[in-house]
Design a protein around this nucleic acid. Structure first.
Length: 492
RNA sequence: GGUCCCAUCGUCUAGUGGCCUAGGACGCUGGCCUCUCACGCCGGAAACACGGGUUCGAAACCCGUUGGGACCA
């Protein structure tokens, strides 16, 4: 593999890759990463990135899942190209191509590269179990290879004549050279007795038909590769390059699954993560470029190379994703944030709680202390009139009798002075001279009175975001609360 | 069970035989800044799974062991 340097990616328009998910659920982060690597590889080389829906297993495939996958990819910004032979603009769907698989299977039969197998499924199953019970490898014995005359009246499957001598070598782009003994492989079924094609066969027929040059997929397919290579040979088509990506694991080093927490891309969207942060996180799981951690999309396209992929599996770390999201939050264009936060607010029935401009204001005050957009949405709600909720701990510590005089003074000064930052700074200076108290002792009770929490942006920012009327109302209610004793919990 | 893959701080990784008393990042942690929190800045603890080779020299190459994972059922 040539490794073009980042400044001048050598265009190789011949690069054609695909992402081929089974539509059985939401877009999994592992699948998203596979798609991402394919996409980056194609974009780096100026090649094509196709999407193919492997929906031949009709019992498990749903249209909703297809929608979810397209939606997830779109959200991540992974656009796919239209395949030249495709009838419509959408992704390629295997169920629309059954005739081709059947035709190709028949062709292999006619060429003597496949044969009819009359063994009933139940019998094969029984033989498999028996072999297992004897401690043997369950492998089809190839008995129907010997059946001479065709009998189309009986139900039969089509089996591929797998070579039994020699070895098949996979020259993998990430794992290196892997050798499989051919005698380990049995004759796989390519077409079931009900005429439905099998997984490995469809993949090869499609990859051939779509002229895929690089098969980049999860290493859970590594063991399928030698038989697929043999199918390529049988179909008389040159091999693509293969690259098998390591898996993403959960914290216990088992393959990442639901029990580890969120696995679907859309869940991360709901949790308030930015797509660029998720992309950046996923790309660094199994790929690196020296010591660099943060990449723009353009940098990724420029710098991506299969050479820097890791062969070992990686554990998913929510902490690092959070950090990346926080760093993106610090630099994103504030205007782009408002609609995303609005969506999150709408999901909790508060879609009209704040205008875009308002969200932007709150965002600017909170971006450096937030990890996700959910944090921002919470912050927006905190300033909505009547929405203050006083934290019990903070109340006990700061809304106490000794704070009363200062709170009263602040209320008076605030009420009578202009509502500007300069005036507020002056107000606190006055207060410090008057009382001899420090800013820290003055600000905390006020902070709790205004926000209900002992943690917030700077006090001047909070005042500005609240506005004069709401600020005064909250101080009044805090004063009443203190005067009424700890039993009275008046709402703001 | 068979086949295959993998193995550097807790985690993601740099490392392509001498630049390694092993670098960066997250997390953890001490300090500074400070109206709180955070941000930022400065510092700290923390890893080459084990055993044999190969070599003047091995984190790196080979073999084995152990451990983890995937696939086949």
């Amino acid at each position: 593999m040539s490794a073009p340097d980042a400044s001048s990616p050598a265009p190789s328009p011949s690069v054609r890759v695909r992402f081929a998910p089974s539509p059985t659920g939401f877009l999994h982060v592992g699948g998203a990463r596979t798609a991402l690597f394919n996409w980056l590889f194609a974009r780096h080389h100026g090649g094509k990135f196709f999407l193919r829906i492997e929906d031949t297993d009709r019992s498990r495939s749903t249209d909703a899942a297809i929608e979810a996958i397209l939606d997830g990819l779109t959200w991540l910004g992974l656009d796919w190209d239209a395949w030249e032979k495709s009838p419509g603009p959408g992704p390629v769907r295997q169920t629309e191509r059954l005739a081709l698989y059947q035709f190709k299977a028949r062709q292999l039969l006619d060429e003597g590269k496949a044969y009819r197998c009359y063994c009933p499924a139940e019998e094969l199953d029984a033989r498999r179990k028996a072999a297992l019970a004897r401690g043997e490898v369950p492998k089809y014995d190839g008995r129907c290879r010997a059946v001479a005359e065709a009998d189309e009246s009986r139900p039969f499957a089509l089996r591929f004549k797998t070579p039994q001598e020699g070895e098949t070598v996979v020259d993998d782009l990430v794992k290196g050279r892997i050798v499989f003994e051919n005698r380990q492989l049995d004759d796989l079924i390519i077409l079931r007795s009900d005429q439905s094609p099998t997984y490995n066969f469809c993949v090869v027929v499609d990859d051939v038909d779509m002229a895929i040059t690089h098969v980049i997929r999860g290493d859970d397919h590594l063991n399928n590769t030698p038989r697929q290579i043999q199918l390529y040979r049988a179909l008389d088509f040159p091999l693509p390059r293969f690259g098998h990506l390591s898996m993403i694991l959960g914290s216990d080093k088992a393959r990442l699954s639901k029990r580890h927490g969120a696995t679907s891309v859309q869940t991360y969207r709901d949790m308030g993560y930015l797509p660029e942060a998720l992309v950046n996180y996923l790309v660094r799981l199994g790929w690196s470029h020296g010591d660099q951690e943060v990449f723009t999309r353009e940098e990724l396209i420029a710098k991506f190379s299969l050479d820097n992929l890791t062969a070992s599996a990686a554990v998913f770390s929510l902490e690092k994703l959070q950090w990346l999201n926080a760093t993106y939050l610090k630099t994103v264009e504030p205007k782009s944030i408002a609609p995303l936060v609005q969506d999150l607010l709408a999901k909790r029935g508060a879609g009209d709680a704040a205008s875009p401009g308002r969200i932007e204001e709150v965002f600017l005050a909170h971006r450096e202390r937030s990890k996700t957009l959910v944090d921002i949405a919470d912050a927006v709600m905190m300033y909505v009139p009547g929405q203050r909720v006083i934290d019990a701990e903070a109340e006990k510590k700061f809304l106490t009798a000794p704070a009363l005089p200062a709170l009263g003074r602040v209320h008076t000064l605030l009420r009578d002075a202009p509502f500007t930052k300069d005036a507020h700074e002056h107000l606190f200076a006055t207060l410090m001279t008057e009382t001899g108290q420090k800013m820290a002792t003055l600000a905390q009770p006020l902070r709790v009175a205004l926000t209900g929490r002992s943690v917030s942006p700077g006090i001047y920012d909070v005042l500005r975001l609240l506005g004069k009327d709401e600020a005064l109302a909250r101080i009044e209610s805090a004063i009443r609360l203190i005067e009424g004793g700890s039993t009275a919990h008046a709402p703001s």
